[in-house]
Write a protein that binds this DNA or RNA. Structure first.
Lengths: 204, 204
DNA sequence: ATGCTGGCTAAGCGCCCGCTTACAATGGAA
DNA sequence: TTCCATTGTAAGCGGGCGCTTAGCCAGCAT
């Protein structure tokens, strides 16, 4: 179960022990925060001695970076995928919200680390993920701007609207839990409706 | 400037040195996070020796608690105030969003600590602020439920809608900065429009 | 004048942190 | 069979952490 989850999240990471460390890191970082987590915590959760972490990652920060970069690449990929698949701005935003929200709910533990532990990254690594974040925000903003230009959306400022849309998605990671009443998919669909109304579109 | 800000945020805290420590704590916790901040950081930012912190607070966690509780009480007070002043659900939600968002923008440094450093609180103290948070969420949910019952709002699930409304407000603390293009008030007003549309109401 | 209280400092205690070192076991290539 | 890369461990180093102790000093009531 644990092993298969890590293989699903990071199929390209080898060997499996490195994935186990990433999973243990995700769980510790999400629950207690990066700085409150010790390398001993992570290693023992992964069933290894403290020194084994350094066989696979040069530092605790590098482990966080691996987690953070992968998560950002996944969410950016999600958004790019929607834009590649459909052209209509209303459909685009609808699908982006559905997928983005569902991902943050389904992967809420990873998402918590991705969204709220950025500040712990060293400058150079931070810049890499910051660039990915700018990419996500840019796409959402452009889709909204395009829709507003075509009269499909009615919004004051596309920049602010994009921020609001992303806020709704990001914040899911903060409060969603496995005991939440809605499945990730259901939540995504409900948020799609909310967002489309927020952007001044009549819902399907 | 610094002193007057702390007096504005915590007028009841005495002596002034305790307020200076709270302000230094807020700034450090917001920038680096609670666990990455040392008591030496806080004390020296407040212009004191490390030991002086313990004259005013029994622990680093107690300092965080003082900041967190005060912030939660302020935001709860804000929301309660609106409910006490106006009765119409549309007006209520509109003002709640305006004030809540403006507070999170204007006090984004404090708000960052309030919203994102909860997990660092000891269990007992966490429970106190968790209760305040439940109070805020309850009020917002009830206002939306009432409005939906009167046909003023058109929303699938009031519970989810309340979550979304609060998400928009809370997340402001994460991204707002002093260099943001909109003033807190302007942002509050724009978010009011977004939220009212999201809840299925026609805007003024 | 004296003694008490509140606010502060210098020094440092004991602990635990991230990370390193030295070394062992395993398994596949030559 | 030998060799080496890979993956791991036991032990511990140096340093910084939260917090404590012992004591100083100014102000003020008696």
């Amino acid at each position: 179960m644990t092993i298969s989850l890590s293989a699903e999240l990071w199929p390209e990471v080898q060997p499996e022990a490195a994935r186990r460390l990433m999973l243990a890191g995700v769980e510790s970082f999400a629950r207690r925060g990066y700085h409150a987590t010790t390398t001993r915590d992570i290693a023992s959760a992964a069933g290894m001695s403290p020194a084994a972490l350094y066989v696979h990652f040069p530092s605790k920060a590098a482990l966080l970076f691996a987690i953070s970069r992968s998560g950002h690449e996944q969410t950016l990929g999600l958004v790019e995928d929607v834009v590649a698949r459909v052209a209509d701005p209303v459909e685009r935003i609808g699908l982006i919200v559905e997928d983005f929200v569902a991902w943050h709910a389904r992967r809420h533990t990873v998402a918590r680390v991705v969204q709220y532990e950025l500040q712990a990254l060293p400058d150079e690594e931070y810049e890499v993920v910051a660039e990915l974040r700018r990419g996500i925000e840019r796409i959402v903003r452009e889709v909204i701007t395009e829709g507003a230009g075509s009269g499909l959306f009615t919004v004051g400022d596309p920049h602010t609207a994009a921020r609001a849309v992303l806020s709704l998605g990001v914040d899911v990671a903060r409060w969603y839990s496995d005991r939440s009443r809605q499945t990730p998919q259901e939540l995504g669909q409900e948020y799609r409706e909310l967002v489309l109304r927020m952007l001044g579109t009549s819902t399907s």
